[in-house]
Amino acid sequence: MSQDKKPSFGFGSKIAAITPDIAPAPPAPPPEADMVAERHGFVARESEQLLKLREPVNAATAQINVRAEVADLNVFLAWCKAERLSYREAFKRIAVAIRKGAV
């Protein structure tokens, strides 16, 4: 396989017959897979990283200050609480609804 030697076409075509996966990824291995490995001495070697609760935001962000009627604010706050939304997520929903013409 040096540069001046012709590659064997037989091998090339055998490689070409192997295709990338089109099937979706199989389900994640069950937790037992790690437990079995641990029993064989294949243990975690990294300190476990804390999951990030908030999704990182890639878009530009800015702040606005809102002065509104208490009753309206309470409607908004109650909705955030019921839906377990952060203000940013709640505002996103409103923006999506406005874009769709739903309000």
Binding site: P20, D21, V36, A37, G41, F42
Partner: peptide, 25 residues
């Protein structure tokens, strides 16, 4: 695995979770 014909995984010379997880895949 979705984009390439071959995925080769070179593992470390230790018994670790990295090794066992790669094996399951």
């Amino acid at each position: 695995r979705g984009g390439r014909q071959f995925v080769v995984v070179d593992l470390e010379g230790t018994a670790s979770r990295m090794v066992s997880r790669a094996i399951t895949r």
